[in-house]
Structure formats: C-alpha cells, structure tokens
Amino acid sequence: MKSIITALLFCLAASLAYAQSPCDKIKYLDKLAMAPSELPVQDFKLFDYNQIPDSVKARLQSEVIKETSAAFFKELKVKTVKYLDSTINAALFTPVVITDKDENPVDFVYAIFYEMQFKGNIPFVFKVEIKQNGELLRPAQFEGIVNQKKKIIPCAKALSIAATDKEAPITKPGDMYIYYNQTFRTIVWQIMEADNITGDSHHVTVIDVFTGDILERNEFLKGMTNFDNE
C-alpha cells in the first residue's frame, strides 16, 4: 500500500513539474519582455484587424507576396495588430521619428503580428510594420523568417543550455520567448530568470534556435516584463 501511495505522489509531483515548465507557456514577440530596438511596439495601441480597410489589406498582401511567396502568405494567421499615430507618439516620454525606406517621415504605422509554424509544429510569431496605405515601412522585413529549413532546437534543449552556462547560468527559469532578433539577425530563444525576492533586476539569456549558441547575457530592471497594452 505504501509503495502505491509513493508511486502516486511521484506521478503527481512529476505532472505538476511538467505543468509548470516554461515550455508549456512560451510567449511571442507581441508580448516580448524586452523592447525591440527598432520601434517602441510596447507603446503601440491594440487595433482590430477587421477594421483595417480592404484596400490596405490588399496592398499589404501584394507587398508580402512580392517579398516572399503566395504559399508563404497563405499560411500566415494574424495574431495581433497594433498601431502608432502622431497623437500616441507625442505622448511618449521619448517620441520617435519614423521614416520609410525613402527617409520620408511617417505619422502612422501598423504593426501586424503574424503567426506561423516551423517544422515540428512549433508556433512562431513575427512582426510586419506597414504604412497606413498598406505599403511596407521598409523592405527586408522577412529576412531570417522565410524558407527556414534548419531544425529548431526545442525549448527543453534551450533550457538545458541556459542552465549549464558556466558564465551566468539560469538556475530558475521564468518566462520563455521565441522571436526574431534584429540585432543578431536570427531567431532566438530568450530565457528569463524567475523573479526572486532580492535584487532589482532579471537575468536574461538569449540563444540561437538553430545553433544553440548563447548570443547574449543581459540584465534588465524588474517591472519591464509586459509590453502588451491590452
């Protein structure tokens, strides 16, 4: 009887540990806990994709297919839409100057977050920034996204790499993200150290999803953990 109870407790503990794994609640670019450097998407406001004019959607579709392919566009699913206009920008602590590919100033930008899947049914979200008329804000936004044939390192492997890092190991993983990193021009796993009582910063490890190389070890202040404006 005692052995049966012990076995049940072990199974319960194992299932709880699995349920609490960061790999069960991976977050994506639209909820990224570190601001992408190119535009302050954390300050964009949510927008209903259905409210975007059909003419703008058509222009966007044409632009995306031109950069990728019709097959690629067909597989995309809109996850989130945000926008930044001159009113929102002016209210920011540090307003940004937005220009298009021709260096012309732009007062309104949509950020459309598309969801797709890589091999192994791994969900992935990336961002496309467009002007109010549906034109791409700048070319080459699909660099590193299209035609990825390499096998992606699974979440559990990334956690193992971060935990065994001799320089700055992640001893207690918290939030886990997968996104395209503009700085390193590759898709990355970003693993954050879980919150603790002491200290005023979080440790972050950034890992290339294709090679397993640690690209960055970083610290940032607590409180900067949710850039979603819902």
Rank of each mutant, 00 (worst) to 15 (best):
E67D: 10
S69Y: 09
A70E: 13
A71S: 13
F72C: 14
F73P: 07
K74F: 09
E75W: 00
E75G: 06
E75L: 14
L76C: 12
K77L: 12
V78D: 08
V78E: 05
V78Q: 08
V81D: 08
V81C: 10
Y83I: 12
D85E: 12
S86Q: 15
S86C: 02
S86I: 12
T87F: 09
L92W: 11
L92F: 11
T94L: 12
V96I: 14
T99D: 08
K101G: 06
D102R: 04
E103F: 11
N104R: 15
P105S: 11
V109I: 12
A111V: 11
I112M: 10
Y114M: 03
Y114E: 05
E115C: 00
Q117P: 06
I122N: 00
K127W: 03
V128G: 07
N133C: 09
N133A: 00
G134D: 04
E135R: 08
E135C: 04
E135H: 05
L136R: 03
L137I: 03
A140V: 08
G144H: 07
N147T: 02
N147F: 00
N147D: 10
I152Y: 10
I152M: 09
C155T: 05
C155P: 03
C155H: 05
A158E: 06
L159I: 01
S160N: 10
I161K: 00
A162T: 04
A162H: 01
A162G: 00
A163H: 05
K166S: 08
I170D: 00
T171L: 14
K172M: 01
K172F: 01
K172N: 12
K172V: 00
P173T: 09
D175R: 15
M176W: 06
Y180R: 14
N181E: 14
N181A: 14
Q182N: 15
Q182K: 15
F184M: 13
F184N: 15
T186G: 13
W189D: 00
Q190H: 09
I191C: 11
A194Y: 11
A194K: 15
